[in-house]
Design a protein around this nucleic acid. Structure first.
Lengths: 228, 228
DNA sequence: ATCTCTGGTGATCGCTCGATAAACTGAACC
DNA sequence: GGTTCAGTTTATCGAGCGATCACCAGAGAT
């Protein structure tokens, strides 16, 4: 019957994609692979995930390192698309509400196995992009939060938060971040209600901030301890 | 001149060690190597650190995996030698003081580049020993802290803390842990006074716990907000 | 001085890795 | 239908990996 007509080839693989599609498919699947295996994950395993052969990678990326950089770019820029300026700085809404919503949205973006693992792996490599991200969190999130807190408490809006304030914010932020690590990296049981966790963390952060603000502005009240 | 007399050999290396010494030297240097390079670090690089050849490793360990397990054992068991039972449970001292001292000692033990990096690398591998450690922190540290807090607040000492209490403790603990990650993994600038950071974190944790205890035991006072 | 036991070395195996070069193939255009 | 060109494969290279084996050498016992 089928002589050499366009008979169904034995290798049903051959799915030709456009250059752009193939390239972004490489990045997507590489993100998955590196999230699981670390950046030591092999190019052959990656090609297998796409159903193509390994040398094809080098038609789209000059080296594995360049592919990895692309993965970084994608992962690190993903959570930035939220637009936290608006969320955090909209003073028509109570600060408590703004912070709650921001952290719910932010953690929705980064609390998943893929993002957290890539983030930790790249952090362990000590790359510049990781330092850039940490600096960004400090400048764009924590500093902004503290400024809003100061404004809310009726304090002078100074351009830069004090070291103690920043540290307080970092411990708060880190506590929330660690919830994601426990859940998605350690796969340990956590309180499932994420919003509740954020709410509780916010309560004690805001209380701590007020306490700090009090003792900083009113030295006469410095001896009043919260713990009684 | 020098025919074949015991002339100073070209290779001044030959430092013969006892089996025990060599074995523990392998583990020590392997910890350093794996902390920096991850567990993908090569056995040849390890041998170079010891000034010996690579096959010697296999006189002491049947495989690289066994060496890695030994590294785990050493790293994970190191901070356990503190004896936190005494530190945390000594009710002759105020709980605030106990917690401060415990966290200072505990972070002295784990806040270093070596420990934190090995911990994160092994956490990313999802090994049993990591889950064991997290469970240990929960049972031996956080549960104990909460029990002492309940006792201090004059509440009934229940055997198991509530999920909300545990989550509060985890966020607190994670916030402190993240300080170490920021300093030693991200190498980001941090408030240098670690004891101060712990003290501040403790303040807001204890305040948060009291607030939670109040609203749990005295429903009539539930409407009294700390921030109000 | 010789024997022996053991810490240590040299050579090498099989495998996997990232990367390269050349050949193949299928769709689009004339 | 034949030409062209981009997407894909086949074959292969050199380096590095973990692991094995035969051999070497130095200190202590006799």
């Amino acid at each position: 019957m089928n002589r050499k007509a366009p008979v169904k080839r034995a290798r049903a693989k051959h799915k030709r994609l456009s250059a752009d599609d193939r390239r972004s498919e490489f990045v997507t699947k590489a993100t998955e692979l590196f999230a699981e295996e670390g950046f030591g994950g092999g190019t052959r395993a990656l090609a297998r995930k796409l159903g193509v052969t390994q040398p094809l990678l080098y038609r789209y990326f000059p080296s594995k390192d360049e592919l990895i950089k692309e993965v970084y770019r994608k992962v690190y820029l993903e959570p930035l698309e939220i637009g936290w300026e608006k969320l955090l700085s909209d003073r028509s809404r109570p600060i408590r509400v703004r912070l709650q919503e921001f952290y719910e949205v932010y953690t929705d973006a980064i609390f998943n196995r893929r993002w957290l693992r890539i983030y930790l792996y790249s952090g362990l490599k000590g790359l510049d992009i990781n330092r850039w991200y940490v600096g960004m969190v400090k400048e764009k999130i924590l500093t902004r939060i503290l400024r809003e807190c100061r404004h809310d408490a009726g304090l002078a809006t100074q351009s830069r938060p004090s070291a103690a304030e920043l540290e307080l914010a970092w411990v708060f932020h880190g506590g929330i971040f660690y919830y994601g690590v426990r859940k998605y990296i350690y796969e340990a049981p956590v309180l499932e209600d994420k919003a509740q966790m954020i709410s509780d963390a916010l309560d004690i952060f805001l209380a701590g901030f007020e306490r700090m603000a009090e003792s900083a502005t009113d030295r006469r009240a410095a001896s009043i301890k919260v713990v009684g």
